[in-house]
C-alpha cells in the first residue's frame, strides 16, 4: 500500500470546496512562493536536529537518523517550525491510505467529501489515486487543491480518480509567476483549459498582493479565461495576509476592501458568474 508524508489533517473545513470537507495537507511543494503562509509544508525534513533543542515539551527526539514526533506530548506551540532552517516540519507523518481513511471514516456522516491540499498534494499523486478510490467507496467526493504545476493531461489516473480540482493561478504573466513562485506558469494555464474541458475544474484562485503583483492584469486575464472556458467555474480572490509569511513581503499591507471590490467587479464584468472575495 502506498504511503505519503502528511503534514496535517483538518477534520472539518468550510473553505476548501463545496460543503464541509476533511482536508489532508501533504508535505512537500514544488513552488517556493514569496507569500507562502505555511512554509513549513514546502520541504521534507532532513533530520538536522535543530528543532530538538527548541521543543519545550519533550515531544521530539532523534531516532535511527530521523526526527520522531510524539503527538501526545506536543502542545502545538510550533517552536520547532519557527526554528526550522529548511522550511519543513518534524511533525509530518508518514501515513498509508488506511491511516488517512481512519480519520475520514470517523467524520464521514458530517462531510461532503475530502480535499487534498498541501504543500502540493500532486507530488504524491500515486497515493492520491488510491486514496480517492477508498473515499469514493464511502460515497464521498474527492477534490484536489493544486498549484497546477504537474500536467494533468499526462496524469490520466489521477485526473480520472478525482472529482474536481481547485487551481491556483497565481499570476497570468510568465515572468511575474517565476518571480513569485520560482517556476513557470505554462502548465498551470494549460491545466485550466484541460480540466475545464473535462468538467473537472471547480474553482480558480488568485491571491491579491498590492505593490508586488499586477493584480488588475491577473484578475482581468483569469476572469476572461474563466468566461471563455465555463462561466460557472468559481473565481476566488484571496486577500494577501502577512500571517505566517517570512521575508520582506511581511511589510506588504492587506489589500483594501475597495481594491478587492473593484477586482471583483472586473471579474464579474468579464463574465464570471461566481466571484468571491476572502
Amino acid at each position: 500500500m502506498a504511503e505519503a508524508l502528511v503534514n496535517k489533517i483538518l477534520p472539518f473545513s468550510s473553505v476548501d470546496g463545496p460543503g464541509n470537507r476533511t482536508v489532508i495537507f501533504f508535505q512537500g511543494c514544488n513552488f517556493n512562493c514569496l507569500y507562502c503562509h505555511n512554509p513549513e509544508t514546502i520541504n521534507r525534513c532532513t533530520a538536522c536536529g535543530i528543532c530538538l533543542d527548541v521543543c519545550p515539551a519533550g515531544a521530539l527526539r532523534s531516532r535511527n537518523g530521523s526526527i520522531e514526533w510524539n503527538s501526545a506530548n506536543c502542545t502545538g506551540c510550533d517552536a520547532c517550525l519557527a526554528a526550522c532552517p529548511g522550511k519543513s516540519s518534524p511533525k509530518a507523518v508518514s501515513m498509508t491510505v488506511n491511516d488517512v481513511m481512519k480519520t475520514v471514516e470517523k467524520v464521514k456522516p458530517f462531510i461532503s467529501g475530502i480535499t487534498v491540499s498541501g504543500g502540493e498534494c500532486t507530488m504524491q499523486k500515486e497515493f492520491l489515486a488510491e486514496l480517492f478510490e477508498a473515499v469514493h467507496k464511502l460515497g464521498l467526493t474527492a477534490y484536489v487543491d493544486t498549484n497546477g504545476y504537474i500536467d494533468f493531461s499526462k496524469e490520466p489516473e489521477l485526473t480520472f480518480a478525482m472529482d474536481k480540482a481547485m487551481l491556483d493561478i497565481k499570476s497570468y504573466d510568465e515572468g511575474e509567476h517565476k518571480m513569485l513562485t520560482g517556476m513557470s506558469n505554462a502548465t498551470v494555464l494549460k491545466n485550466a483549459e484541460y480540466l475545464a474541458n473535462k468538467q473537472k475544474l471547480y474553482e480558480i484562485r488568485t491571491v491579491i498582493v498590492p505593490g508586488i503583483l499586477d493584480n488588475y492584469r491577473n484578475v482581468a486575464e483569469v476572469s476572461r479565461l474563466i468566461a471563455k472556458l465555463d462561466a460557472d467555474i468559481r473565481y476566488k480572490l484571496i486577500r494577501f495576509r502577512p500571517v505566517g509569511v517570512s521575508g520582506d513581503i511581511k511589510k506588504v499591507g492587506i489589500p483594501s476592501d475597495e481594491l478587492m471590490a473593484e477586482l471583483k467587479k472586473t471579474a464579474e464584468k468579464n463574465g464570471c458568474r461566481y466571484v468571491s472575495v476572502v
Binding site: F12, S13, S14, V15, P18, G19, N20, F110, I111, S112, S276, V278
Partner: peptide
C-alpha cells in the same frame, strides 16, 4: 459564505 458546510454538519 458556505451554508452547505453547516447543513452537512
Amino acid at each position: 459564505r458556505n451554508p452547505a458546510y453547516l447543513l452537512d454538519i
